[in-house]
Design a protein around this nucleic acid. Sequence first.
DNA 1: CATGAATGAGACTTCATTCAT
DNA 2: TATGAATGAAGTCTCATTCAT
Lengths: 200, 200, 200, 200
Amino acid sequence: MASTGAAAIDKRRLILDAAVRVFARQGFHTCRVSDIADEAGVAYGLVYHYFSSKDEILDTLFLERWDVMLAAIAQADASRRPPREKLYAIAAFIVDSYRHDPELMKVIIVEVTRAANTFGRTHLQKIRQAYQQIAAIVARAQAAGIFREEITPEFAAQAFYGSIEQVLTGWIFEREPVGHEELERAKTLIVETICRGLER
Amino acid sequence: MASTGAAAIDKRRLILDAAVRVFARQGFHTCRVSDIADEAGVAYGLVYHYFSSKDEILDTLFLERWDVMLAAIAQADASRRPPREKLYAIAAFIVDSYRHDPELMKVIIVEVTRAANTFGRTHLQKIRQAYQQIAAIVARAQAAGIFREEITPEFAAQAFYGSIEQVLTGWIFEREPVGHEELERAKTLIVETICRGLER
Amino acid sequence: MASTGAAAIDKRRLILDAAVRVFARQGFHTCRVSDIADEAGVAYGLVYHYFSSKDEILDTLFLERWDVMLAAIAQADASRRPPREKLYAIAAFIVDSYRHDPELMKVIIVEVTRAANTFGRTHLQKIRQAYQQIAAIVARAQAAGIFREEITPEFAAQAFYGSIEQVLTGWIFEREPVGHEELERAKTLIVETICRGLER
Amino acid sequence: MASTGAAAIDKRRLILDAAVRVFARQGFHTCRVSDIADEAGVAYGLVYHYFSSKDEILDTLFLERWDVMLAAIAQADASRRPPREKLYAIAAFIVDSYRHDPELMKVIIVEVTRAANTFGRTHLQKIRQAYQQIAAIVARAQAAGIFREEITPEFAAQAFYGSIEQVLTGWIFEREPVGHEELERAKTLIVETICRGLER
DNA sequence: CATGAATGAGACTTCATTCAT
DNA sequence: TATGAATGAAGTCTCATTCAT
């Protein structure tokens, strides 16, 4: 009995994971709820037992992951390391997120971040939080005299995050999987380029 | 005959311009073909006289604009100016494109990229061309000893374009229109930051 | 060309008439929109071209007919005849309505009255108007000393209308069509019974 | 055993009573089986332990109550009182039924009596029994020379029952609860009006 | 060119019912 | 008895596309 609890498959999780694969493969608008159910190997209706709509599935996936990222950024900022290392930690986290689950990152970048428009303003708020946290790191680095003042922290955050997202977008639309080497290299290139642009 | 051609309202253009506004407002998937016809003030069926499908309207908008951008990049590259100025010309062109028609830029950034996933790979190819042209500029700057070699041209192009796109995305999702000042400033910030990161 | 306008089949009307037959046969909740389309011999989507929902079809049928009835009651009341004749005119109108289109009356009595609960309060208001107009006739007959004062006009209207509706309900659920004789007889019986109960 | 039987809450009853409230509030078609379970405070599946379908719940409610009414009518008829008093007893029983449980009466009148259509013919048969018993009372009153012969007993029963039902329908769709006074008055008005119409 | 009625496939969502525990 | 997760058929509504005029 006790073991059942542990062994029991969490159908809700099953559905979420299936949704990631289906959204990544077919796109949110192009896929049908039945595709998700099929991919998860559950009955159609069960999807609606756990989620009130197709939108809610995407929302859930986004929020789950984005909150983890906000936490990672916060943690990077909390350390006493120099700003360049903080930004490296953030870049590394995002790149590793892609390595760990490229399909989920594809869904978040392609379907949510760009669609923030159509969805409620909630996501927009969440997304901005990330920029703001990064901007705060930059601002503090400026106050400490490490980064120069000419560049506004807001812009710096956009350049930093935009560069990362663009690199990921490139990988996402590549036909072949990206090698470990290239992933690691990207972390360095991003920080190297942007920080050099920001430092005194 | 000639006079009719000149006086007659170009309905096709009317439809395309209306589509930009509708796509920007409601999103490509959320809007209906009839919304476009209504916005253009033409009959429903006329849309299908000029375009074979809803997709084709988006394709047309994208290709029209993207080709102009590819030309602008090519032109920037063709000049004998130093690389920093070439990149400035490109950033300026994109920012000015936004100033001139923010709704069109919104559609291209938000809707096309997302659709690139679902639609055929044609767009992807076109989009890559831009990166490649930018990367070529970087590569030549490296060969000339102006940019350092550590950063690959491909990544440099992604960082450059990604930064711009992110800035535009920020404006796009802002509720209030962006001032002229900020637009001009963005051009400088982008080039300043990225080029400084790339230069020796 | 001119003839086309006249000859052209009004598809909207076709759908409404088909809906009456289908609602009468299967009941509003039990029938599908496709049943209506099939019965009307039109494409599924056309139903939604003319009506925004299944509910709206029922609404339309009810309002169309009920307004005619309200007009008939008003007209009966407008005459200078004695109250008994006014009530006879009303009973006759309703019975003749049944004779003319028993299916429509079935729909209105069985489906609308029931739905009055679920639907918005609009119908309820309309339905009440009929009672109020009848009650007004009674009230005036009382003032004229023709009907006795003990019975409130509101109750008299309910008894009158309730009797008619019950007779119709009987016919509606009968397997065999009701003969002309019985229809005519009913008019007299209703008025005879109720008016005798109301007169001094 | 005996104590358990007494102490145990009769879940079946709980479900039936909850169904009355839910059907009255939302209508039979509009409510879900889960709404009934929630209202009863029992698990979803338990409803299906006691009833084989949603329909059966409504059937049960109707039959339970209608049989009581048939018995009441039979009892009224069994007495040696004059016909007017018999009819008063019947009217009183129905009005008191409403007083005692207005929601149940609403369900029976709105959802069953009018829906007899959709449901099997069983209910129709039951409903007709009531009319027939009332008609029998009238017929006997005619044979005794108390009621006049011009009005057929069947019509008389319809007028009588129809008046009552209409009054109840009025109360049912009223927003405010009906006072004791009005309830009592209705009994008298109904019998007064209809019997006067029927008597010699 | 222009119109908008007509078509019908397709998607989401609901919910009665079943079933394993 | 009691629970509520699981099933999947069915229905409403949408909307891209076609077509007759």
